[in-house]
């Protein structure tokens, strides 16, 4: 077992608090995520047991685009909950701070964007192959190593986090949410592809693609750029009727992101496909010609 020393708290996010810590054995700096596990009359919830054990199993594969899980430790035991710490490798930079830095400078080279998106998609494909839906992909939980390799963080505990979220009142960002989540429909792996599509746009645009302030506002912002979906792609079994959709003037993604190349645009549209069953999969996206075209420096 690791001996850890908490240094200081540095992010109090929607999904529990993250601490920076030090492994006393080798002085390695680690990130510690504190998660509250409810203990009911039935003991530890089934979802937590399944998620934590899956997370530990995932760690053994050491995928290059997945943040390395070093350990799972238990902390304080209270009457009705157990504090658990998940120990990750620590990284100084995430995609959000990187975007910040680049937006104040010269932007991001398109070859660099391609590398980042390829890394994200590789990580997403790996998660999907292991039956994990990330559900909350966004620049804040995509970490960057010093050599520019992306690593996905904050996955695999969706149901465990749900409990934690009920206890915190932090607003979760909606900007990367797929339409099916916004519409309250059942969802699966395609939601992550949607998020990657949003991030792809953001890397070119240097600001978020769709910045809604509520579920319905978010949906409207999406439709105002992508246009109203085809009638047959609109879900039948929801209260929001197709005919009542008043989208108004529709912008054009091409004009919005003029520096996006042809193949990049094609891939992005395949990732931002409204109907989730028609959305491209991570595996197919990785085979897209966008990733194999001649490197161009812009």
């Amino acid at each position: 077992m690791m001996r850890l020393e908490l240094e200081y708290r540095y992010i109090s996010g929607a999904y529990g608090t993250v601490f920076k810590g030090k492994n006393k054995k080798n002085d390695a700096v680690v990130a510690l995520k504190r998660v509250r596990i409810p203990i009911t009359d039935d003991g530890v919830p089934l979802s937590t047991i399944r998620e934590v054990s899956l997370l530990k199993q995932i760690g053994t594969y050491r995928h290059p685009n997945i943040v390395q899980i070093l350990d799972v430790c238990h902390g304080k035991r209270l009457e009705k909950e157990l504090i658990m710490y998940i120990v990750f490798e620590h990284m100084e930079q995430d995609l959000s701070s990187y975007l910040d830095k680049c937006s104040r400078g010269a932007g991001i080279k398109s070859t660099e964007i391609r590398k980042i998106i390829h890394g994200i998609l590789s990580g997403v494909e790996f998660l999907h192959l292991h039956r994990i839906v990330h559900r909350d992909l966004k620049p804040q939980n995509i970490l960057l190593t010093e050599s520019g390799v992306v690593k996905l963080a904050d996955f695999g505990l969706a149901k465990t986090y749900d409990f934690d979220m009920k206890l915190t009142s932090v607003v979760v960002t909606l900007w990367y949410r797929a339409p099916e989540i916004l519409l309250g429909m059942p969802y699966a792996t395609p939601v992550d592809i949607w998020s990657v599509g949003c991030i792809l746009g953001e890397l070119y645009l240097l600001k978020p693609l769709f910045c809604g302030s509520s579920d319905s506002d978010q949906l409207m912002k999406i439709l105002r750029i992508l246009g109203r979906p085809k009638f047959e792609d609109w879900p039948q079994d929801i209260s929001l009727k197709y005919d009542s959709l008043d989208v108004g003037e529709v912008g054009d993604l091409r004009n919005l992101i003029p520096n996006l190349c042809e193949n990049g645009y094609d891939l992005m549209m395949k990732m931002l496909t409204f109907k989730y069953s028609k959305r491209i999969t991570a595996g197919d996206a990785l085979k897209h010609v966008y990733f194999s075209e001649e490197p161009l420096d812009t």
């Binding site: 039935d42 054990s53 530990k56 799972v72």
Partner: peptide
């Protein structure tokens, strides 16, 4: 007994360091 099982479950998880798959 019920309480003992719930407590033991947690103990087993901790002893096995949450590696239960």
């Amino acid at each position: 007994m019920r309480d003992a099982i719930v407590q033991a479950e947690l103990l087993i998880m901790r002893v096995l360091k949450f590696e239960v798959s």
